[in-house]
Structure formats: structure tokens, C-alpha cells
């Protein structure tokens, strides 16, 4: 029998998914903290985005790392999903009772939806931000542009929906990661569950509020 190395096994691949997922959670937290400066007004937000220009080489390295993290997460997700299908080639003929949570049952659906959103997000805000020379218009692009920005209520609704899918994905994903690492036990479970609320609820809710405020509520006031 051929001996498999750690990352050739499904447990090893799950470890990679858990690790990349957790790294993404922390990226989302930093991303949200940056985005919250939108509430401080145009000057603060424009100054923050402009300041990133000074550390552009570092940003580029981080972007490449994020891409590697993303590709690793997605590749292993599809690989394991495909393997699961081959582990049960013919399914049950009767209705199977499944007591697992909705968020855990829909990980692939929420994951693919987030990926599609990411394509739109990078194709609009990220791409436009790369080509802007005038550092005083970042705020207006986000809050007032009526094609790709929150000036378009449909974009706001898209971002709000994406926030919900991120929350659903992390509801299962964050806690599950610690189970995969084998460090979730009776003593640590309560702490992990509390920290998990920050990532599956507070962070997505923050993104939701930003989209709702600048895309819909502010226009109604």
C-alpha cells in the first residue's frame, strides 16, 4: 500500500482549507476596519487609500499571497467535493434525514456565490482603484458612482446579499476549522464559539451596514 503524505490525505487537504479559511477571515476583519473609515467622511477614507500607495510593493506581495490562499482554498474545496461524490456513486432512493445546520449543508453553494461576487468586486472597485490618479475621488467612487458604486442601489443589494452569504459560509467554516485543527475541545469550545461570532456575524454585518447605509438608507434621508 502506498503511504500517503499529510497533504495527500483528505484530512491534510481539509487542514489546508481550514488554514486558508482562517487567514481569509483575518483579511476580512482588516478589510472591514479599513472600510469603516467611510463613516468618517471623504477626507479620512481618501487619506487611508492614498496611504496604501506608499506601501505598494508590500500590498502587491499581500495580494499575491491572498491569491495563493484563495486558489488553495478553492482547489481543495472542489477536489474534496468531487471525492465525496465518488465515495457515494449511487445515492439513497428514500428521503434521508440530515440534522446538520443549513450553513454546513450549503458550504459549496455559499462558497461559489462568494467567488462569483469576488470576481465582480475585483473587476469593479479593485480594478478602478488601480487606475485612479486623483487621490481625492476614492470616496466618491465607492459611495456615489451610479454604475459600479453604491450610487447604484442594485450594487448595494448585491453587496448586502454577498455579506449574508459570507456570514453563512463563516458560520460553519470558522468553527469547523478549529475542529479540523483538533484544537476545539470542551475547554476551548466556548472561547472559539465567542470569537466565531465576530467573524460570522459582526464582520459580515459590518459590510452589510456599509452597503445598506451608502447604497440605500443615505439616499432615502
Amino acid at each position: 500500500m502506498k503511504k500517503l503524505s499529510l497533504f495527500q490525505t483528505t484530512i491534510g487537504k481539509k487542514l489546508l482549507m481550514a488554514l486558508t479559511g482562517i487567514l481569509f477571515c483575518f483579511f476580512l476583519l482588516v478589510h472591514l476596519l479599513n472600510n469603516l473609515t467611510l463613516f468618517l467622511g471623504p477626507d479620512s477614507f481618501n487619506a487611508l487609500v492614498s496611504s496604501l500607495e506608499y506601501i505598494k510593493p508590500l500590498i502587491r506581495v499581500l495580494e499575491v499571497l491572498l491569491l495563493i490562499i484563495l486558489v488553495t482554498h478553492i482547489y481543495n474545496a472542489f477536489f474534496l467535493s468531487y471525492k465525496s461524490k465518488s465515495s457515494r456513486p449511487s445515492g439513497y432512493s428514500s428521503q434521508i434525514k440530515d440534522s446538520s445546520t443549513i450553513s454546513s449543508k450549503t458550504m459549496l453553494i455559499s462558497g461559489v456565490t462568494i467567488l462569483l461576487f469576488l470576481v465582480v468586486h475585483l473587476g469593479t472597485f479593485w480594478r478602478i482603484f488601480q487606475s485612479v490618479d486623483d487621490h481625492s475621488i476614492y470616496y466618491d467612487i465607492v459611495t456615489k458612482n451610479n454604475i459600479v458604486g453604491f450610487g447604484n442601489p442594485l450594487i448595494a443589494v448585491l453587496y448586502m446579499a454577498a455579506s449574508i452569504f459570507i456570514g453563512m459560509h463563516l458560520k460553519h467554516g470558522f468553527e469547523s476549522s478549529f475542529k479540523t485543527f483538533g484544537i476545539s475541545n470542551v475547554r476551548t469550545k466556548n472561547i472559539i464559539n465567542k470569537v466565531a461570532i465576530l467573524f460570522w456575524f459582526v464582520v459580515p454585518f459590518g459590510f452589510f451596514v456599509i452597503s445598506a447605509w451608502f447604497g440605500i438608507i443615505k439616499g432615502l434621508l
Binding site: 500500500m1 502506498k2 503511504k3 500517503l4 495527500q8 490525505t9 483528505t10 484530512i11 487537504k13 481539509k14 474534496l80 471525492k83 465525496s84 465518488s86 465515495s87 457515494r88 440530515d98 440534522s99 446538520s100 445546520t101 454546513s104 449543508k105 458550504m107 460553519h172 468553527e175 469547523s176 475542529k179 479540523t180
Partner: peptide
């Protein structure tokens, strides 16, 4: 675990239906 993989079982997604 090597043998489990060899037999073709799927991976664990920590959904807990097995425990239930």
C-alpha cells in the same frame, strides 16, 4: 488514516450528522 483513504471514504466536514 492511510487505509481509510485507500478504501475510498469521503472527507469529514464537521456537520455532525454521524454523531446524531
Amino acid at each position: 488514516i492511510n487505509q481509510m483513504e485507500e478504501e475510498g471514504f469521503g472527507h469529514c466536514t464537521n456537520t455532525g450528522n454521524c454523531e446524531a
